[in-house]
Amino acid sequence: MSGTFLYEGKTKIVELSEDGQSVILTFKDDITAGDGAKHDVLTSKGQFCSETTARLMHYLNTKGVYTMFINYIPPNKIRARKLKMIPLEVIVRFKKAGSFVRRYGGTEGEDLPEALVEFTYKSDAMHDPLMCVEHLEVLGILDRENAVKIINQAKQAANFLKEFFSLHGFELWDIKFEYGFDEAGNICLGDEISPDTMRLRKAGEIFDKDIYRRDLGNPMEKYEVVLNLCRSILL
Rank of each mutant, 00 (worst) to 15 (best):
G3T: 00
F5E: 01
L6P: 03
L6V: 02
E8H: 12
E8I: 05
K12R: 10
L16N: 04
L16W: 14
E18V: 07
D19N: 15
Q21L: 14
S22N: 13
T26A: 11
K28G: 07
T32W: 04
A33L: 08
D35R: 02
G36F: 06
A37V: 15
H39Q: 07
Q47V: 12
Q47L: 13
E51W: 02
T52Q: 00
A54P: 01
R55V: 01
H58T: 01
H58G: 01
T62Q: 12
K63H: 05
G64V: 01
Y66A: 03
Y66E: 08
M68N: 11
N71I: 03
N71D: 13
I73T: 02
P74K: 00
P75V: 04
K77G: 03
M85F: 07
M85H: 02
I86C: 03
L88Y: 02
L88W: 02
E89D: 02
I91C: 00
V92C: 01
F94W: 00
F94N: 03
K95R: 09
K96V: 07
G98R: 04
S99T: 07
F100Y: 03
V101A: 00
V101R: 00
Y104H: 03
G105K: 00
E110V: 07
E110F: 00
P113Y: 02
A115P: 12
V117L: 01
T120S: 08
K122Q: 05
D124W: 00
H127Y: 09
D128R: 07
D128P: 04
P129M: 05
L130E: 13
C132K: 13
V133C: 10
L136G: 06
L136R: 06
V138E: 12
V138K: 15
L139V: 07
G140P: 09
V148N: 14
V148R: 14
K149F: 10
I150F: 09
N152E: 14
Q153I: 03
K155D: 04
K155T: 12
Q156S: 13
Q156I: 05
F160C: 07
L161R: 09
F164C: 08
F165Y: 13
F165C: 10
L167V: 14
H168A: 15
K176E: 11
F177L: 08
Y179G: 08
G185C: 05
C188G: 02
L189C: 05
G190L: 05
S194F: 08
S194V: 13
M198I: 07
M198D: 10
R199H: 06
R199Q: 09
E205W: 09
E205Q: 14
I206Y: 06
D208R: 02
D208I: 11
K209G: 08
I211R: 11
R214N: 15
L216R: 11
N218D: 15
E221S: 14
N228R: 09
L229R: 03
C230V: 12
I233M: 09
L234K: 14
L235E: 15
